[in-house]
Amino acid sequence: MAKFMGPRFKQCRRLGLNVCGHPKAMDRSTKGTSRADKKLSPYGVQLLEKQRLKAYYGVLEKQFSNYVKKATKDTDPTGYALLKRLECRLDNLVYRLGFANSIRQARQMVVHGHILINNKKVDIPSYSVEIGEVISLKESSRNNLLFKDNFINSLNQYNYLSKDYDNFSGNLLKYPEREEIPILIDEISIVEFYSNH
């Protein structure tokens, strides 16, 4: 599985967005400014937004391009369709439900077989979760204190997800509306980037 291997804090500061989930990732006490702080051309803005969204969801270029192509064929506006597809990835919803404290950790949990969909193991982080599907922690993994504490102590609540604390599970109730997706991104710029290139 290909993944970004560079320094994550540096990547966060360069993109002007906390893409690694660490609370200190955006500490500006270090030297230098983010690329997001500099005056950019329209192309530069589009490119930066694309890089930010890719990094936030941990998706590489080829896979991201495929998401954009599918989004252009959706009946919803392309930018929203793109965000909706990324938001409903299994690794992201494992993170949103609180099983993991970052998307990166959620991806590891999925790959290592800790996560079930409708009681069946799914180890593909990019799996597209459908409405009504139940995401749960494998029975034997519920003894892992890190996973258990993450899930129980997570305070994040999303209108498109429900949590069942007793059964260490969650459910995708509906596809998220644009305003419910908790990421500051200009998806229109990303659509423009791909329509111009």
Rank of each mutant, 00 (worst) to 15 (best):
M1Q: 06
A2L: 12
K3N: 15
F4W: 12
F4A: 08
G6A: 02
K10P: 07
Q11N: 14
R14M: 08
L15F: 12
L15V: 07
N18D: 12
V19T: 09
C20V: 05
C20H: 09
P23I: 08
P23L: 11
K24C: 11
A25M: 09
D27R: 02
D27H: 08
R28F: 00
S29Y: 02
S29A: 06
R35G: 11
D37Q: 11
K38I: 01
K38V: 03
K38A: 08
K38R: 12
L40P: 11
V45S: 13
L48N: 01
K50R: 07
Y57A: 00
G58C: 03
E61P: 07
K62N: 14
K62S: 12
Q63V: 03
N66P: 05
A71R: 13
D74C: 07
P77V: 13
P77Y: 12
Y80S: 00
L82E: 07
L83P: 04
L86G: 01
C88N: 15
L90W: 03
D91F: 11
D91W: 06
N92L: 06
N92W: 04
L93P: 13
L93F: 06
R96K: 15
F99I: 10
A100E: 05
A100Q: 03
N101Y: 10
S102P: 04
S102L: 06
I103H: 14
R104F: 14
Q105L: 09
A106H: 00
V110Y: 05
H112M: 15
I115Q: 01
I117S: 02
K120H: 10
K121A: 08
D123Q: 00
I124K: 11
I124D: 13
P125V: 02
Y127A: 05
V129T: 15
V129P: 11
E130A: 04
I131F: 11
I135M: 10
L137Q: 07
K138L: 09
S140K: 13
S140D: 15
S141T: 01
N144L: 11
N144M: 07
L145W: 08
L146E: 13
F147D: 06
F147V: 11
F147R: 01
F147G: 06
D149N: 13
D149A: 08
N150D: 10
N150K: 04
I152S: 04
I152Y: 03
I152P: 03
N153Q: 04
S154M: 09
N159S: 09
Y160G: 05
S162M: 03
K163E: 05
D164L: 01
D164R: 03
N167S: 09
F168M: 05
L173V: 13
K174S: 12
Y175C: 10
P176N: 10
R178K: 05
E180H: 14
P182K: 10
D186L: 02
V191F: 12
E192R: 12
S195R: 15
N196Q: 15
